[in-house]
């Protein structure tokens, strides 16, 4: 174990003395910002798409919106996140005249991408709510949109919360692809320490531990939210 001891010391030297922890903190911050904002944007987009998809389709506008949403989901689920990131950062946004830094671009792409996945999660959640709830809302004269927002979606969210937790965890882990556009994240920060010190084992183990702790914290948070949302169930 003496050998390992030296590796730990080397890691410590690069982490503390050469201030590798600054990069790690910066990376942690970016990872969290990208995943959290991505999830928020994704939830908004996903909810909107899911609402369009369950809308009654008598009129032309909902039918057109539905076609657009189908295309959107097909596009963003059909290509890898890395590809979307590269296309947005190097091609699409510059063409449109935006020169954003890599972290904002990552936030946008993560939001758009998770929107496609969350729309499917939300649709399943909405369809799992008893259709009688929508009927009752419409029967007292509330519009489709109001009933959706006030009655159906709050119940759907309770059903899909565990799945949304999974989506958040997936986003956290997937932030490791943002190095493709030169953004600093947890993965890059530890990789830098590893390559600088020529010692790979300890930084990579440390990195894995940080991810595991993050994910464990999220799981705890989701459990806590589930409990507080169970208010309207029988056991209270």
């Amino acid at each position: 174990m003496g050998d390992f001891r030296i590796k730990v010391d080397t890691f410590y030297e690069y982490f503390v003395t050469y201030e590798g922890y600054r990069d790690v903190l910066e990376g942690l911050k970016n990872t969290l910002i990208i995943a959290v904002l991505g999830l928020i944007i994704g939830t908004v987009i996903g909810t909107a798409i899911a609402a369009v998809r369950v809308m009654p389709k008598y009129k032309r506008l909902p039918r057109m919106l539905n076609g657009f949403c189908n295309g959107y989901v097909a596009l963003f689920r059909g290509t890898p996140m890395v590809v979307q990131l590269l296309v947005f950062y190097y091609v699409l946004l510059p063409l449109m005249g935006f020169n954003l830094r890599s972290v904002p671009v990552a936030i946008i792409v993560f939001g758009l991408n998770s929107g496609a996945y969350i729309s499917e999660i939300m649709r399943g959640g909405i369809q799992s709510v008893d259709p009688g709830q929508m009927e009752a809302g419409r029967a007292v004269g509330l519009s489709f949109g109001t009933t959706m927002m006030k009655i159906v979606i709050p119940q759907a969210i309770k059903n899909i919360l565990p799945t949304m937790g999974n989506e958040f965890i997936a986003l956290i882990k997937e932030t490791s692809v943002v190095s493709f556009v030169g953004a600093m994240d947890l993965c890059v920060a530890f990789k830098d320490i590893a390559t600088n010190s020529y010692e790979f084992i300890v930084p990579y183990i440390a990195m894995a531990i940080v991810y595991i702790v993050l994910v464990a914290l999220i799981s705890l948070g989701v459990k806590w939210m589930e409990r507080s949302l169970r208010k309207s169930d029988r056991r209270n």
């Binding site: 029967a139 007292v140 309770k158």
Partner: peptide, 30 residues
């Protein structure tokens, strides 16, 4: 149609109370 449904109450076989609202909110929501 929403305007007219406000004047036509409906009671369902399966009750269809809003599960995420309290009894009072069920009545006051609309």
């Amino acid at each position: 149609i929403n305007l007219h449904r406000q004047k036509m109450g409906m009671v369902f076989q399966q009750f269809n109370l809003f599960n995420n609202k309290t009894v009072l909110e069920n009545i006051t929501l609309a």
